[in-house]
Amino acid sequence: MRKLWWRHAALIVISIIMLAPFYWLLKTAITSENIYEYPPHLLPVRPQLFNFVDVWYLIPFPRYLFNSIVVSLIAVAGNLVLNAMAGFALTLPFVGRRSVIVLLLSCTLIPFQATIIPAYLITAHLGLLDSYLGLALPLLSTIVCIFIFKASFDAVPRSLIDAARIDGLGEMRILLRVMLPLSTPAIATNIVLSFIWSWNNFLWPLIITRSQDMQTLPLGLARFLSYMEDTTGALYAFVVMVLAPGLLVFLMAQSAFMRGLTTGATKG
């Protein structure tokens, strides 16, 4: 019994440390006037929500939000279609299948950060700098997600596929009518992972966007900090607005979410 008490105490201390930054962020976001007052108050004094209104006037928040949503939607759609097709192809027997798998696995060893200079030059040659497609293009297919689809398709009973073939269904129809309806967890994982990677992506948009009109939310945040300094609670209200939707979705679907993130941990 004493042992359990000790565990709870340790975990409560850890939880407080882990939650403190969240609390400090929220507190600052609803603090009025001078956030530099010393000593800072642990509880918000005269809490108000003006900062959240200010965000809309200080920066083109709707524009950033719109750009982030468009790029993420392109990335998610691309991932679903391309990864499902590639994952399905890898479950079929063909000459060179092994080498394709080896090629894909070795690509996972090349981190995106090691490609930025040529990736920028390639995108410039394609004339896609400062465009939605250019922002989404490198994220359109992910190796980890291809293998998640492949594993899911491999688990579909052979007899079902053979029956569909005897009925005269082509490969495309088998994928759409047999495989995908039986792979909803893989589809969900694909959506969650590709959305997060694209939504949180910072380095790539930083490199290839030129105009403020094409900037996404993470760039907006960084820009806010460097142009306005951190002199106003509005910056923290902005951070709350960016983080809140994702956190709510996470808290509602956390078990599926954690599973998805750990499967896709290696980021293809």
């Binding site: 930054p21 949180n200 993470p218 951070v239 956390q254």
Partner: peptide
């Protein structure tokens, strides 16, 4: 609680 910070946008 411990996992909560992982999926956050790193810029944030």
């Amino acid at each position: 609680i411990v996992f909560l910070s992982y999926p956050l946008m790193t810029v944030a």
